[in-house]
Computed example of a mutant assay.
Amino acid sequence: MVGSLKPGPGGSIIAHGVSLEALENRVNKDPFVAENIVTVEVLEIEPKKADDRLSFLLN
């Protein structure tokens, strides 16, 4: 899942089933990141509740 942060500039990516190293490698290949146009901060979350359609994120 990808989307914008409100209000203001920035965005977010929710990733599942990928290692932190693999995610960082993928993000670092983004042209905006590679050209130092944007900076990235990766935050890990531990989901506790989810809509039934997103229950796979709880495993």
Rank of each mutant, 00 (worst) to 15 (best):
M1R: 12
M1Y: 12
M1Q: 12
V2C: 12
V2K: 12
G3M: 10
G3P: 04
G3E: 09
L5G: 04
L5A: 08
K6F: 15
P7C: 05
P9Y: 12
G10H: 03
G10C: 05
G10L: 05
G11P: 00
G11V: 04
S12C: 12
I13P: 00
I13K: 06
I14F: 11
A15N: 04
H16V: 10
H16F: 15
G17P: 01
V18R: 11
S19Y: 07
L20S: 06
E21A: 14
A22N: 14
A22S: 14
A22K: 14
A22V: 10
L23P: 02
L23H: 01
L23N: 03
L23Q: 05
E24G: 01
N25D: 15
N25E: 15
N25I: 03
N25L: 11
N25Y: 01
R26E: 13
R26A: 15
V27L: 15
V27R: 01
V27A: 13
P31Q: 10
P31K: 09
F32V: 09
V33M: 01
V33P: 00
E35Q: 14
E35T: 14
N36T: 07
I37N: 05
I37P: 01
I37H: 08
V38H: 02
T39S: 14
T39A: 11
T39F: 08
T39Q: 04
V40Q: 08
V40E: 08
E41L: 12
V42G: 02
V42I: 15
L43K: 14
L43H: 12
E44W: 00
E44A: 12
I45K: 04
I45M: 09
I45D: 00
E46F: 08
P47S: 04
K48T: 13
K48W: 07
K48M: 11
K48R: 14
K49D: 09
A50C: 05
A50G: 03
A50I: 03
A50N: 04
A50H: 06
D51Y: 08
D52K: 13
D52V: 07
D52I: 10
R53P: 00
L54W: 14
L54F: 15
S55F: 02
S55N: 11
S55M: 05
S55G: 06
F56T: 03
F56S: 07
F56H: 11
F56Y: 15
F56W: 10
L57Y: 02
L58I: 02
L58Q: 07
N59Y: 07
N59D: 15
